[in-house]
Simulated scan of single mutants.
Amino acid sequence: MKQHDTEYELDRTFQRFEDLHLNEIEKKETYRMLINSIDRTNKKAKLARFFHSAIPVALTTFLLIIGGLFGAHLLFTNEQVVPGTELMDEETAINELKPTDFYEFRLVAFFEEIPYESWSEDESLDPELKRQFQIYEELMTIDSLDRLEEFHILIPDSEYVEAFGVTEFPTFIGFDHTGIYMTTNELEDVESFMDFVQQQQSMSGAIAISKIEDFPYDIKKPAIMPFEPTWTQVEGSIVPYRSSYLNIDYSDEENRMQVFILSHISIEDPPGEHELPRESFQQVQLSDGRKALYILDGRTQVLLWDDGELNYRIIMYLDERDVEKYTIAELVEIADSFE
């Protein structure tokens, strides 16, 4: 299995710097400290080595205070617990760490310490830490870790240690979209988890669905409609790592309205192959100020907007081609009613 080289890990480091919420001065200073401390050789080194020899102790402390989470993907997302505030419970921790997508998975690894560069030559190293460092090194050689949506490495300072009741190191917790999939102290179980991840993500083609509850996202539906539907049909599909959709078709004898919901799509994205260019749309606003796009397109009126990680579209079918059946204000009112 391949090792990650220094240049690759540096790229991943700076891709995650935005999560630190630093101002420009702090970013430049952090960058300067990091660059000045790196041994510019062609030797390959694991990411964890930066934390003991390459990066000064002051920078390490600074990053730990701000982030609390660091590892293969450098996810500095853990806020430190302020004295006197309520500690995180397990349910809250699970909700923060579990992915939302049906085919996304996350792994959290708890270690007592992160290996430093010369740990294998340190004769005074505690045997227990040596065992953990060896497991850490083996963990980093698992190529399939790149399939994870997020991968965190945490140390005892993290509030997640108490939330999950971690008392042994290392401890590994794997998450799917429902919550905790596995908890283990064994690296073999992590490898089995990653085999499961690969198996799930290698499924080809779309999974057809015909029920709203089968869609792997929490959705909203309109509380206001311009007619009373007498017939409703649901269909959709789930496609790993691509846009999944749900279509709810409402109609009566004279009217038809579709609510089309997509994942991995935003009104800010370039249009798809079979979509009209964005300049063809009229920009409007929902009552809460969110941006929406409107178009009269032959036999339909369409209003689309983003809500969280999903894109919503109201499609109203017309009685006459290019003749608006509803005002934009009426469509916005329908969109505002989604709950």
Rank of each mutant, 00 (worst) to 15 (best):
P170Q: 07
V81S: 15
L87C: 04
E149F: 09
L69A: 13
E79N: 10
D195N: 14
V197H: 00
V161F: 00
S124H: 11
E150Y: 13
L145Q: 09
P115W: 05
W119E: 03
S192F: 02
M194E: 11
I180S: 01
A163Q: 11
A109D: 03
Y103D: 10
E159R: 15
D146S: 07
E159Q: 14
L87D: 08
I173T: 10
I155V: 14
F196V: 10
V197C: 01
P115S: 13
L125P: 13
D157M: 09
D176S: 10
F172I: 09
I142R: 10
D157I: 13
Q198F: 11
I66M: 13
Q200E: 15
F169V: 11
E168D: 12
D122A: 03
F169M: 08
I142Y: 12
E186G: 03
N95T: 02
G71C: 04
T77I: 07
E117S: 02
M182C: 09
G165R: 06
F196R: 14
D146N: 08
Q132D: 08
P156Q: 04
S124P: 00
K130W: 04
I94A: 05
W119V: 03
A206I: 10
G71L: 05
E168I: 09
E168R: 09
F151P: 00
D189A: 14
P99M: 09
S192Q: 12
T141K: 13
I173F: 08
F70K: 04
I180V: 15
M203W: 05
Y103N: 09
G165N: 08
S118F: 06
R106Y: 08
F164S: 06
S158L: 07
L97Y: 13
I155G: 00
I155H: 03
N185V: 02
E96W: 10
P83Q: 11
R131L: 02
E112N: 14
I65A: 15
M140F: 02
P127V: 09
P170D: 05
V190C: 12
M88N: 03
L154N: 01
E113C: 04
T92D: 08
V81G: 07
D126S: 15
M194P: 10
D89F: 03
I135H: 01
I135A: 01
E104Y: 03
G205L: 08
V190D: 09
Q199V: 04
L148R: 06
F133K: 01
P83H: 12
E121A: 07
H152K: 03
Q80R: 15
D176H: 06
P99R: 08
F169T: 11
